[in-house]
Structure formats: C-alpha cells, structure tokens
Design a protein around this nucleic acid. Structure first.
Length: 588
RNA sequence: GCGCCCGUAGCUCAGCUGGAUAGAGCAUCCGCCUUCUAAGCGGACGGUCGCGCGUUCGAAUCGCGCCGGGCGCGCCA
C-alpha cells in the first residue's frame, strides 16, 4: 500500500533529523481535503511543539531528507507545518493496476493476533428480539474484518443457558405446560411459562422459594430437572439456528453458561484461598483492593455522599453462582484453550460496570495470565423507536427478531415489485430477502456503535441516501456493465493497464487504494461504521464516474482500462459489504 | 445522591487518541433519462457544534463548571 510506503519513508527521514523519535507517533493519513493532496501528515507539528522547535523549520528539514519522488509530486509544507503528499498520476495508475491484478484486496496484517470475539449471546427459552440485533450484527462484522486482515479469530456464542430464570421455567414446565402450544411454537410457550411464574413469584414468596429450590436441584444435577433443561435448550437451539441462518451468522463455538457450571466451585474456592474473595453476609464476595481512587473504583458506590462497598458476588448466600463467576471461568477457559491475545465482548454499554469489575477481578485472580491478554468490552447503544422511546411493538412488547426480519423482507418485496416488475416472483423474493436483511444490518452498523439510534423502516429501506439498498444497487449497476459487455461480445484486454485520466476516474481509483487502510482503522476501535462510510463514499464515487465516463462506448485502450476499474470497484464493494455481513446481488 | 453516556443544519446522524473553510441523508427548491439499471447524478438553501471559562500556533474533539436528556448503582444477566 502506498500509504505504508509513505509512512515508512517519513519515519526514516524523521529519524535522520531526530534520531530519538518514537515512530509510532508518526502517521500518514488520507487528506480530508483533496485540494491539499492525497495524503497528509500532521504529526510533525505536535513533535515540534513538544521539543519547542519551529514546526515549519522542522518540516523543511524532514522534507529535505524525504525521498518519496517515486510516488509523489514534491511534498508541500502547508499552513503551520502540514506535509501534503500528492500522488503522481503515473504512480496512481501503477498502484491501482497492481491492486486490480491481485487476488486479495487487502494485505494481511504484519502482526496477526488471536482474538476471541464474544457476541450475540441470546437466552435459552426466550425469543431473540431487537435487543440481540446490535450485538449480533456488530460482533459478526468485527470478526469478519479481523479475518479479512489475516488475524486468527475464534467466535464464541456465550448462550444464556443457565441461571436463575431456569428455576421459574422448571416450575412452569412441571405445572403449567401446554404440550400442544409447545409443539406449535415452543419459544412462545416457554416465554408464557416464564411470564406466568415470574408474575406469581412477585406476588407470592412461596412461589419464589419453590423456583429457587428447583434451580438448586437443577444445579445439583437432579435428573428430572436436567432433562427439562436439556429439552428447553434443544428447542431454543432450533430457533437460534433458523435466525442465524437467515442472518448469515456462524459461530466457531457456542459454549453457553452451562458449559462452565462444573468449574464454578473451584473458581470460588481458589479465589477464597488466594484471599481475593471473602465471606460476606453468607455470600462470597470480592471487595475493592483500594488500588483506584473511589470515583474510578467499580467496587465502590456512592450513597448519600458516602463511598460504600459494592463487591462483586461470586457465590450467592444460597450457594448458587451468578454470572460474574461464570464470566471468570469463561476467561480462564478461553485463555487455556485458545491462548488469545485479546478477548472482545460485544455487549450493551449498560453492562460497562460489570465488565470493569470482571476484568479487574480477573487481573487480581490471575495476574500473569491477565498480562498476556487484552480484555475489551465493545459496547453499543440502544435501538429506539421513531418516537425516541425504546423500540417496542404498539402493544408495548419487545419486537421479536423473526418478526422484524419478516417485515423487512415484506417491505423490500413491495419496493422490488414496484421498481423492477420484470423479474420473476422467485427473483423478486430473493432480492427482497437480500435487500431486507441487508437494510437492517446496514442500519445497525452505519451509526457510531455507541450512539442510540432511531429505528425507521422508512429510512432503512429508503432508496436514496446512505442505506444498504443504495450500496447493493451500486453493485448491480457495475455488474450490469459486464452483462452488457458479454452480450455485445466485448472482452477486456487482460493485460490492459488502468489509466485513470478523468478526475472522476482518479477520485475513484484513489479511494479504492484506501480500502485496506480503512479496515486497519476499524480494528483499532472496532468501529464497523467506518467501513459503512467508506463504502457509501465508494458507491458515490462510482456513480459519479459512471455518469461522466462512458465505459462500453469508449474506444480501446480506454474501454479496457475502465472495465478493469469497474471490476475492481465491484470487487471492493462486494468484499466490503460481505465484511459487514451483507450480501450482494447481480441484478435487482 | 454518586457514576457513565449523550447534546452538531428543521428531522435522522457522521466527524471526537486536537489539525486546514464542520460533512452526509431526509425534507424544500432548481436542473439531467433517443447513450452501460434515474433504486442514479449535479446544483441551491440550511449550523453561536447546549452554555461559559481554560489549555494550545490551532478545540465539535482535551480539562473544569453549569444547563438539558438517557442509563446504571449486592445476591438478574
């Protein structure tokens, strides 16, 4: 990548001027304003400031040592000390031609890491709903970007298949189960059971006690309760398989909470022995170690002006375990099994305090292991309805994922039918499926993950603007050229170079060269929306090129050059969309 | 009460490890289909980046203080 060459050269030139500079501080980035150049470096100004030097003079000294003539016009020093790099047309053409000729669009990372990505995590015996969309879409996109960059990825779906809710569910199963309803719609029936018993528990302490007893029996290995639990898990797995199939999401592992059940007593015992946890009101708890100032300490909470302990409980007073313990055992298992450099948790931002506690607790429990792994909570915001309130159905229930996907496809089908009635019904249904699912995913991935966003069918499936449909349409327009070419017997000269002559061609080519760089930025902070923004811009640049530069009607060698540029744009667009987990179509 | 997040164009949102004249889409208005899919393209209009102070050559971005909204705060996950 040209960008890396420039960065390397800049670091080399700077080292000749200031030998003790940290190269990591030097970055060459795409120029936000094309009229200043194609790439820029602003790091010298900060450096000059830190050393009380004249920034422009430092820039001049570095530029004097800088040898990038192979790629760039003479480097300009602008404003207070920016370096502006403008690509030579010749270098641009060589680079884009080379990219078009290579099989892989992205250079693999020079430092591949092993990353465990923990995402989706639906609950057994409950329907998947809108609340699972974000974790599933964002997590899947993250793992795809990592793989594309050549990292080793382990995806693990940490199913909510164990825990307090099963006490209530077992009570319901034993006393209130409607077999026919279970056959018709197992998840709905399980949900009904849970709701009924949960309601009863709120009003009746005896019922709550009964549920607790069933839970304790289950956790103690009771055969009957174990069989019921297993059946509920099986029914749920069928639901997950269906929905993940529709969404095109796969996992390497689905080690749910139950997988760690047997490991939990030893975890608590070990932590008690090591003095990290202690008894408190009958429970086993981890308290603050006082290493952080109170306001940054997740083991403390302020109540009426007093900082009081808020320990992490790893065993409840009734002897049961909770998710903190499970999560500790999970980290332990993942480190032993996969030796990851990093574990990322794609989970709602509201759980941030839990993860802070979890990571700190683990570091106290296994300091050496914790030093070798980076634990990161990748949080995200809520999905709101069009009224700005949390997204619910009209009757106030959570929106089920299956219903949401159905509606997306239905709405997309209407649009396709209106826009392209020439397609057969089967074709239109396929287009509707790809467009509908893609629209939901794109709507979820294009905002900054930490923002809450407003869910709007209208906007999501809008044919204009920054939507999945727009990108998919841009792709079909590219493919359409090649269909037309085949019809007319036009062949691409395989040896042709891409000569980007027109401004719209050059802008497109330059943007294509930045694909890999965009992916690298994404992985730093796990922000898939950067890829959405990149692809939206790509589609726009392609459309402009498409309007202003005839492809099939131009004469050789321009025709082959443009066909190759189209092909590359198509490959990048498709690869980028697929990396977001979004499918493309040849026609729509 | 304490903590976290948010406040950018009429609406929905980008941009935030400081960088050049703050960007999109929608909406409104004006243009472009005898030429590769008009599900498209071009243009116009629209902003005290919640308010104030500070740090800096430079602040939407960093710090402090307000105002407004959301979320979270022992045996759920």
């Amino acid at each position: 990548m040209i960008h890396h060459e420039l960065e390397t050269q800049l670091i080399r030139a700077l080292a000749a001027v200031l030998p003790d500079v940290d190269p990591a501080a030097i970055q060459v980035r795409p120029c936000p304003e094309p009229r200043f150049g194609d790439y820029q470096a602003s790091a010298l100004m900060g450096l000059a400031k830190a050393r009380r030097m004249n920034p422009r003079q430092l820039a001049a000294e570095v530029v004097a040592k800088l040898d990038v003539g192979q790629w760039c016009e003479p480097v300009e020093i602008a404003g207070p000390g920016f370096l502006n790099f403008k690509l030579k047309t010749e270098a641009l053409n060589a680079a884009i031609t080379q990219m078009a000729g290579e099989e892989r669009l992205v250079e693999p990372s020079s430092h591949p890491r092993t990353v465990v990505v923990d995402f989706s995590s639906p609950n057994v015996a409950k329907p998947m709903h809108v609340g699972h969309i974000r974790s599933t879409c964002i997590g899947d996109a993250i793992q795809r970007v990592l793989r594309l960059l050549g990292h080793r990825v382990v995806t693990d779906n940490h199913l909510g298949d164990w825990g307090t809710q099963f006490g209530k569910l077992i009570v319901g199963w034993k006393e209130l189960l409607d077999r026919q309803a279970l056959d018709r719609d197992p998840i709905a029936e399980l949900e009904r059971l849970y709701r009924m018993v949960n309601q009863e528990c709120e009003e009746n302490p005896d019922r709550l006690e009964q549920a607790r007893e069933e839970l304790v029996k289950l956790q103690a290995g009771d055969e009957e309760n174990g069989a019921i639990w297993k059946e509920m898990a099986r029914l749920s797995q069928a639901q997950f398989d269906t929905l993940y199939g529709r969404m095109g999401v796969q996992f390497d592992h689905a080690l749910g909470e139950s997988f760690y059940n047997e490991a939990l007593p030893a975890v608590v015992e070990d932590m008690m022995n090591k003095g990290i946890a202690r008894e408190s009101e009958g429970a086993a708890a981890v308290f603050s170690d006082g290493s952080l100032p109170p306001r940054e300490d997740p083991f403390l909470v302020n109540r009426d002006g007093e900082w009081v302990a808020e320990p992490a409980l790893i065993r409840k007073s009734d002897g049961g375990f909770n998710y903190m313990t499970t999560d500790l055992a999970t980290i332990d298992h993942r480190l032993r099994t996969w030796q990851p450099d990093e574990i990322v948790y794609v989970v709602d931002d509201r759980q941030a305090p839990h993860f802070r506690k979890l990571f700190l607790t683990f570091a106290r429990w296994q300091p050496a292991a914790a030093d070798r792994v980076r634990l990161r909570h990748i949080g995200f915001g809520k999905i709101l309805g069009e009224d700005g309130r949390p997204f619910k159905t009209r009757s106030g229930d959570t929106v089920k994922l299956s219903v949401l996907l159905d509606e997306a496809e239905e709405r997309a089908l209407k649009v396709v039918t209106e826009k392209n009635p020439a397609l057969t019904e089967a074709e239109r249904r396929e287009v509707a499926r790809v467009v509908g699912i893609g629209a939901i995913k794109y709507a979820d991935l294009s905002p900054n993950r930490q923002s809450d966003y407003q869910f709007s069918w209208e906007k999501m499936l809008s044919l204009q603007g920054n939507t999945g449909v727009y990108l998919q349409y841009a792709y079909t327009r590219i493919r359409s050229i090649f269909r037309k070419a085949a019809e007319e017997g036009v062949a691409v000269d395989a040896g042709a170079r891409i000569e980007a002559g027109e401004p719209d061609e050059q802008a497109l080519a330059k943007h294509l060269l930045r694909f890999g760089l965009t992916l690298e930025y994404i992985v730093e902070e796990y922000r898939p929306n950067y890829l959405c923004a990149y692809l939206y811009e790509l589609a726009g640049l392609y459309s402009r090129f498409y309007e202003s530069c005839p492809v099939l009607k131009s004469a050789e060698p321009q025709r082959s050059s443009r066909l190759k540029l189209c092909e590359l744009a198509g490959r990048v667009l498709k690869c980028g969309l697929n990396t977001l987990g979004i499918e493309t179509l040849e026609q729509m």
